[in-house]
Simulated assay, not measured.
Amino acid sequence: MKRYLGLLIVAVCLVSCIKDAPLNPEADIEVFTVPQGQLTGQTNIDQANRKIQVFLTKEAFEKGISPNLVISKNAKVKPASGDSIHFNKGAVEYTVTSERGDDIKKYTVEVINVGDWNFEFENWAQNANDKYEFPVESNGTAIWSSGNPGVALSGVPPLVSSYPTRSTTDGYQGTKAAEMVTIKGTTLSAIVGIYLYAGSLFLGDFNSENVLAEPLAATEFGEPYIGLPDKFVGDYKYTPGASFQDENQKIIPGRVDECSIYAVLFEGNERLNGKNINTSDRVVAVARLSDGTAKANFTKFDIPFVYKAGWNASGKNLMMAIVASSSKEGDHYRGALGSRLVVDNLSVIPK
């Protein structure tokens, strides 16, 4: 009898433990899978901002996709994993509800790029607080950044014209292009030894958290890329400023400023930055404009990617960075005030 009573008590305890097990409070989309044939770049889940960024072929964008999802244990998601989603009416949103029911997260699917990597810089948005401009895709997604957020911290007036990078109607074709101008630093920036800001534009993000401690690390370059690029093409014109100065404001007689335009293919899922974009051993191919001198009229460039000898692309995740600057040495705060670079119709042509 004692034995049976003991077993009964153990069974009750086990049932009680099972009943008392806490429900899972998490409500995350952990994996978002789209067939490789429908992608032009690696899918990225931005958990901090609850965004799912996808690079789609034109056909996949027009016909829709049916992603497979992995979500938090016992959570529920709507639309369900495997359901077809379409982008003809704008952004798509997933709602995830935790098993416990009190945590609900909404994820927005952003189509970053459709088809080939062609950028015409026709669409621009404006930062709400600091008023600087930045280019966006036709659906409003921002994949380009610049040094403007850093310049905003130096105390410039909240006007588009106060910043070194902005839109211009002086383009090669269409209504707009990207304009970069090397400008004078501010009283505040001079305190830390920064006397000029070069206009810059790059695929990636500007991390304001790093700008004071490591300014070069604040520029984070790259977006996911699938396949192998063959050529980097585009149109540009450039006017160097009158007097080249070094990082200490010393004028260098006879020195003429030059612009910089290049594309870099590199391995991994993490972005490179201004400290290592030109030195990292993760870089596997580069297409760099060799002539950064003055061009009064729009000039077309067509640059082949030069690959690292013996490199094997098999099974590797890749990222692509495109970088342009009105002063080639602007990352070291050297250049000529007033140097002006305009770029339009940038494209990465696949093999």
Results as ranks from 00 to 15, higher is better:
Tyr132Ala: 14
Pro224Thr: 06
Glu93Met: 11
Val286Gln: 11
Phe55Ser: 04
Tyr333Trp: 11
Asn123Pro: 09
Ala91Ser: 09
Leu56Thr: 03
Gly185Glu: 05
Asp116Thr: 08
Lys58Ile: 06
Ala27Met: 05
Ala296Phe: 03
Thr239Tyr: 05
Gly147Arg: 10
Gln38Trp: 03
Ile143Arg: 08
Ile226Tyr: 06
Cys17His: 03
Ala21Pro: 01
Met1Asp: 04
Ala178Arg: 12
Pro25Arg: 12
Lys231Ser: 15
Arg282Gln: 05
Ala285Gln: 03
Tyr236Arg: 11
Lys63Val: 13
Pro164Ala: 06
Asn345Lys: 08
Met320Asp: 01
Pro253His: 06
Phe121Leu: 06
Gln36His: 02
Asp344Phe: 10
Lys184Asn: 04
Tyr238Cys: 13
Phe266Leu: 15
Tyr94Arg: 15
Leu341Glu: 12
Lys131Gly: 02
Leu7Phe: 11
Ile303Phe: 04
Ile252Gly: 01
Ala321Arg: 06
Gln249Gly: 01
Ser72Cys: 13
Ala178His: 05
Thr279Arg: 14
Asp116Trp: 14
Val151Lys: 09
Asn273Trp: 00
Cys259Asp: 03
Pro215Arg: 12
Ala190Asp: 00
Phe298Pro: 12
Pro253Ser: 10
Leu14Met: 13
Asp46Ala: 09
Leu23Asp: 07
Asn210Arg: 05
Lys176His: 04
Phe244Val: 11
Glu179Trp: 01
Tyr225Cys: 09
Lys105Arg: 12
Lys73Tyr: 00
Val109Glu: 02
Pro304Trp: 13
Ser327Ala: 12
Asp130Arg: 08
Asn88Gly: 10
Gly227Gln: 05
Asn74Thr: 01
Ile277Pro: 10
Ala263Pro: 07
